[in-house]
């Protein structure tokens, strides 16, 4: 269903958002009433499964076309994807340094899933800011060169990177104190 190098139709985006929304709704209900999807599933396994479903829904939404996917949307998408790719690299390289320093640190599946979640959430945030808040986006900047902190998009990029660093730092801190 999900092909590489190909954007899916707008219906896939709607379906993805429905899946992600259902996952988030289940997670919200689950925090009040402990529901069990499968009888033998532990709370951690169920939490991981819900997170994976939400992430899959967001992934479908992120790699789908808009209703009117014109050249402006494509320009915004190209820049957002560039930023997201840079961010993913920064996050993975930072994690590599942490693993190198803390050589006894073991990441579980539920820890690793943090990385793609942040990347997809930040991509969706950046893309939709460009799409719906025209004044926050600078089309004139070269798509292949977004300077951190320079220009409107660059400032947005800087805020996203700072947020990512904060959230990742907090997540790594939580992983460390749990052990």
């Amino acid at each position: 269903m999900i092909g590489f190098g190909k954007m899916h139709g707008y219906k896939t985006k709607v379906a993805g958002l429905v899946i992600a929304g259902a996952g988030i709704a289940f997670w919200a209900i689950n925090s009040f009433a402990e529901l069990k999807l499968m009888p033998k599933m532990t709370a951690e396994q169920q939490g991981y499964m819900i997170w994976w479903i939400v992430l899959f829904g967001l992934y479908m939404a992120a790699f789908s076309k808009e209703k009117n996917d014109d050249e402006r949307v494509k320009a915004i998408r190209a820049k957002s994807m560039l930023v997201c790719f840079n961010l993913s690299m920064a996050v993975l390289m930072s994690m590599s340094i942490v693993l190198f320093i803390e050589d006894n640190m073991v990441f579980r599946a539920s820890d690793i899933i943090i990385v793609p979640t942040f990347c997809i959430v930040f991509y969706l945030l950046m893309f939709h800011v460009g799409l719906y808040f025209d004044n926050a986006w600078d089309y004139k900047e070269d798509t292949n060169h977004v300077s951190l902190g320079k220009g409107k998009t660059g400032r947005l990029y800087l805020v996203i990177v700072l947020l990512a660093a904060l959230v990742l730092g907090y997540a790594l801190y939580q992983i460390q104190i749990r052990r």
């Binding site: 009117n68 014109d70 050249e71 402006r72 949307v73 799409l131 025209d134 089309y139 004139k140």
Partner: peptide, 20 residues
């Protein structure tokens, strides 16, 4: 194209392609 694209082109914020 979308209405937002026309708005962006009209205000000079988005430079359209030669085709558009």
């Amino acid at each position: 194209v979308s209405k937002q694209t026309i708005h962006s082109v009209e205000t000079g914020r988005f430079i359209p392609s030669s085709v558009l």
